[in-house]
Design a protein around this nucleic acid. Structure first.
Length: 881
RNA sequence: GGGCGAUUAGCUCAAUUGGCAGAGCAUCCGGUUUACACCCGGAAGGUUGUAAGUUCGAGUCUUACAUCGCCCACCA
């Protein structure tokens, strides 16, 4: 059904008023739900990467929202049953840290208020802050199905998490045991390898003497002297002439005087440091492995908070850094130190807290992950899952092929509590372990305190949110999902784990395509950070310019997988583009004159400019389709902008005024239909990029649906694409440009109408039939065709494009000398180009080996240049002698 | 130590199978042309980091080097 255009279009798009109104309109009509499509429609599903529940919107969220909403809106317009499933993540460590900070400010702590009260306070915090991020996503225009919103700790998802854990346990893939882990002393929890970030820092390297039984000393260096207290051996290379004789002798831990062996191992690098190595299996990953090989024991010298424990003797109770100083001072006094020197090395820090992480022995839950990883490798290898851009597949393989067992347990309070119970047996409090949904029958069972790594629940997200492990209707219809769009920084944390878990639990890859976007950086390539004060707050931008300009800028600023620098001037440019599109719609709207033209007139009735703009439009649609197919949304957006701003608005819209202002009724009708068609198609193409303005503007055109969000995506009509029409028109537009320049050079008042003359040839006859092009674009009122034998007019400037020469009579204004100079310059320029083309065509290799169409294009070009040069030569001869 | 990316106009970035290097911002000149001054018309600005190679032809493919950034890795 064709709907009439709304009238009284406002002068500007008032985004402040319109955005919330349009968003409610969409939401209330249920357009965001997959049920808006016919029941048999093909589904298209994206699981939103769940933001931290207590977080607030930053530029990264804005980027993923813009991209995912674009994909969803595009597929929705293509008739799919689209589901963008939103939700939030409980984000164990991050959230617990925030609540702990809050408690600290109150002068309290989680230990002080206890487990129950802490959880209560955290849920309270979640209720207060959890909604913020959601409403911020909505302000950006996210067309999610909010009725299906999930939270990783809600009931259904928690059950999925426990079920997954129990299944893995039953399959023998989960085990519990003491291992050396990365320990975060401030949070007092284990963290996984991925959660540790190390970067180079300036530290001190301490050189000292290790006393050996024979009265000799072994020189050793360390960056962490306090770990001396946990040494279980001193190691040297078996081939090291200097120290070889000491292997097998006893050495004595400084100050403690504990006896340890000197061992030989080829792991030791003779050329590094002193060539001798202290071995601390309890607090260093390398030393742990070395210790295993030599049957050394493990001595833990740290408490949970990284203070020294009883094994540190007189240093017990000291903080590790204080211990470092005291011990070193004591060793100095004992004459055991050699020297200290500044040293640069990588220091491991917790990704969240930023504190230095200590390798420490502790008993944790692990997932034996190789069987899962093997499936995940195969899925990408055989193409069931594609990663865009492809180069990340290599990174993905490398990680999975070298994967370590996953430490699943965290000593936090906020998270999914591991469904395990212990019962004392033979004095061992963990003598019996039971894993299951409910506590086992019988007395004495104590529930596990630890919670699961946040990323464990995230790994289940694509199917847990759809109802798994129940065989729900949503799971059947919407799983597997289609595209996973997220940042490349969480390829391991999240993407790889979703693929592993999805394949393991559902037998299917959770999505067929992974689209990875880059990080948004500030100008100069710096990371956005609050402390640097260079963070662009997306909400401030939305307040100032609206959501559309932010979205358009983010999408057109980068290419897949590459970090992009957000240039704030582009935001203003996008804003102006949106205004431009609005104004174009307004122009068409005010010229509709109450009618509701829809559908193109028969092609035979179209004039050259109309056929040209339709050809250009449908070429654009074809290009945009290609670019969408290969995920190059930014380039697609830029091409749409270029078409509208550089071709449709300045040329066709201008030319159309000729018919609109003084054409016949039939001419007006034809032009209106073309204008409406082009603008309508452009608004459709732009809708996924800038949903608000386009939805509002669309209502001011005659249209065939109730809302743009559900309108059909444009299809290129190859029958409208016409190379010949485009070539002719672009030649005429070149004449327009030259005429404008010439007028400018002669300072002809822009408002003054002039005439033009041309000899009567095929090209000029065609142009004369389309003189309205010249009239509207360069104020040339009339083109008179002269017989070929008529002399060219005196006192005329001339503009030449190809074989067309226009004479512009400029009575009394023509400066012969200047005109000759102008023509001479033009000739020189042309000769340069001709020479280049001629050279190429003279190259036999080029003519024989280049693709035929490339050669032909060069020939055409050469001919055209030659024609223009001939015309100029003639003109020079007659005017300038 | 491995791997990846980047290097194009003053700045931020494009360039679809190799085929005359393009935008925005900034700069300069000119404009109250009845959709838009949130605008219009023009101009200038590049040996595509360096050096070789493949090719009729290279920003694009190959190799080396340089600078910057990121990821992974057990050197005290």
């Amino acid at each position: 059904m064709v709907r009439s255009a709304k009238t009284d279009m406002p002068r500007n798009f008032d985004f402040v008023e319109a955005e919330p109104r349009i968003y409610s309109f969409w939401a209330e009509r249920g357009y965001f739900k997959p049920e808006a499509a016919p029941a048999d429609a093909e589904p298209f599903v994206i699981s939103m990467p769940p933001p931290n529940v207590t977080g607030s919107l930053h530029i990264g969220h804005a980027l993923f929202t813009a991209l995912e909403d674009l994909m969803i809106r595009y597929e929705r317009m293509r008739g799919k049953a689209t589901l963008w499933l939103p939700g939030t993540d409980h984000a164990g460590i991050a959230t617990q840290l925030q609540v702990e900070n809050m408690l600290r400010e109150e002068g309290s702590s989680r230990e002080e208020i206890g487990y129950e009260e802490f959880l209560h306070r955290t849920w309270q915090w979640k209720e207060e802050h959890g909604g913020e991020i959601i409403s911020q996503l909505q302000r950006l225009g996210a067309s999610c199905d909010w009725d299906r919103e999930r939270f990783t700790l809600d009931e259904g998802l928690s059950r999925a998490v426990l079920q997954a854990f129990i299944t893995l346990w039953e399959q023998g893939l989960v085990y519990r045991g003491p291992r050396l882990v990365n320990w975060s002393p401030g949070l007092k929890t284990a963290v996984s390898d991925l959660e540790v970030e190390s970067s180079e820092e300036e530290v001190t390297l301490y050189y000292f003497r290790y006393p050996v039984e024979s009265g000799e000393h072994l020189p050793v260096a360390t960056t962490r002297p306090e770990t001396i207290l946990g040494d279980m051996a001193v190691a040297v290379h078996p081939a090291d002439e200097r120290y070889r004789h000491l292997i097998g002798k006893r050495a004595y831990v400084p100050i403690l005087k504990r006896e340890i062996p000197v061992i030989g191992d080829e792991y030791v690098d003779m050329d590094f440091g002193t060539g001798a190595l202290k071995v601390t299996p309890g607090h260093d990953f390398d030393d742990y492995a070395l210790g295993q090989r030599h049957g050394l024991g493990i001595l833990n010298i740290l408490n949970m908070d990284a203070s020294m424990n009883a094994n540190a003797g007189k240093y017990a109770g000291l903080d590790r850094y204080e211990c470092r100083e005291r011990l070193w001072a004591d060793m100095q006094a004992a004459g055991l130190t050699i020297k200290t020197e500044p040293y640069t090395t990588r220091i491991p820090r917790s990704q969240r807290g930023g504190e230095v992480v200590e390798p420490m022995m502790s008993t944790q839950w692990y997932l034996r992950i190789q069987p899962l990883a093997d499936k995940a490798i195969a899925a990408v290898r055989d193409g069931r899952v594609k990663i865009v851009p492809e180069r990340f597949e290599k990174v993905y393989f490398h990680w999975l092929e070298n994967i370590q067992d996953w430490c699943l347990s965290r000593q936090l309070w906020w998270g999914h509590r591991i469904p395990a119970w212990y019962r004392e047996n033979d004095g061992d409090p963990e003598g019996e372990i039971y894993v299951g949904m409910e506590a086992p029958a019988g007395d004495g069972w104590v529930m596990e305190q630890d919670v699961l790594d946040t990323w464990f629940s995230s790994g289940l997200w694509p199917f847990s949110t759809l109802g798994w492990p129940q065989d729900s209707a949503d799971l059947k219809r919407f799983y597997p999902t289609q595209v996973m769009e997220t940042g490349h920084d969480i390829l391991f944390f999240w993407v790889a784990r979703m693929i592993m878990m999805g394949l393991w639990f559902t037998g299917e890859a959770p999505f067929h395509t992974v689209y990875l976007h880059g990080l948004v950086r500030a100008e100069g390539g710096k990371k956005f950070s609050k402390t640097l004060g260079n963070a662009v707050d997306p909400l401030t931008v939305v307040d100032r310019l609206g959501a559309d300009p932010l979205r358009f800028t983010l999408i057109t600023s980068g290419t897949p997988g590459n970090d992009c620098h957000l240039d704030e001037t582009r935001l203003d440019h996008s804003f102006r583009f949106i205004n431009k599109v609005w104004q174009m719609t307004a122009f068409i709207n005010m010229n509709l004159d109450g009618e509701r033209p829809l559908g193109l007139p028969p092609q035979a009735e179209l004039d050259l400019p109309a056929r040209w703009i339709l050809s250009r439009l449908h070429r654009l649609i074809a290009n945009a389709q290609y670019l969408f197919d290969i995920y190059q949304y930014g380039e697609a957006g830029n091409q749409i902008l270029a078409f509208m701003w550089d071709e449709f608005a300045p040329f066709y819209l201008e030319i159309s005024k000729e018919a609109l202002y003084q054409g016949s009724a039939a001419e007006k009708d034809r032009v209106r239909r073309v204008l409406v068609h082009v603008q309508d198609q452009c608004l459709r193409l732009l809708h996924p990029f800038m949903p608000f303005m386009t939805e509002e503007a669309w209502a001011y055109l005659p249209r065939d649906g109730e809302a743009l969000i559900l309108a059909d995506w444009p299809q290129a009509d190859s029958g409208l694409i016409d190379d010949d029409v485009e070539a002719r028109m672009s030649g005429y537009l070149e004449l327009v440009r030259e005429t404008r320049n010439t007028r400018g050079e002669y300072k002809v008042d822009p408002g003054r109408r002039i005439r033009a003359l041309a000899h009567d040839r095929a090209g000029t006859r065609d142009l004369a039939a389309n003189v309205h092009i010249l009239r509207r674009l360069c104020n040339v009122d009339e083109l008179r065709l002269m017989p070929l034998d008529e002399a060219e007019p005196a006192n005329s400037a001339s503009v030449v494009v190809g074989d067309v020469t226009l004479y512009l009579p400029l009575e009394g204004m023509l400066d012969i000398a200047a005109e000759c100079q102008r023509l001479a310059d033009e000739e020189a320029k042309l000769n340069g180009q001709i020479e280049r083309a001629a050279k190429m065509l003279a190259n036999r290799n080029f003519v024989e080996r280049a693709r035929p169409d490339v050669v032909q294009r060069e020939r055409d070009r050469h001919a055209e240049l030659e024609a223009a040069a001939a015309q100029i030569k003639e003109r020079l001869a007659s005017l300038c002698g």
